[in-house]
């Protein structure tokens, strides 16, 4: 089922919220980088975040599903 709203109308409704959340993500990553004893570079969660940002930037139609999978344990591991 398609959204009853056009893509343009959806973008109107979502743009500021997306902008805000992207800035929040950038600020949080800056915060982690700025913190003392920064081991974020080797923390596997940072790899998950980087992979997630790639997924967001991709043209895939199921980005939310792919993000959930990127943050999920595989086979209980």
């Amino acid at each position: 089922m398609q959204s009853p709203m056009s893509a343009a109308k959806l973008l109107d409704a979502e743009f500021l919220g997306i902008r805000c959340r992207l800035i929040d993500i950038a600020a949080a990553l800056d915060r982690i980088d700025r913190a003392p004893s920064n081991a974020a570079g080797v923390d596997p969660r940072m790899l998950q975040i980087r992979r997630s940002l790639d997924i967001i930037a991709s043209p895939a139609a199921n980005r939310a599903e792919q993000l959930q999978l990127a943050f999920s344990l595989q086979n209980g591991q």
């Binding site: 500021l16 919220g17 805000c20 800035i23 929040d24 600020a27 949080a28 800056d30 915060r31 700025r34």
Partner: peptide
């Protein structure tokens, strides 16, 4: 201010920087 300006956490970031 929600959505269009700074959040509390981002304001604290700017104070720290």
């Amino acid at each position: 201010y929600p959505t269009t300006k700074a959040t509390p956490d981002r304001a604290v970031d700017m104070i720290e920087v």
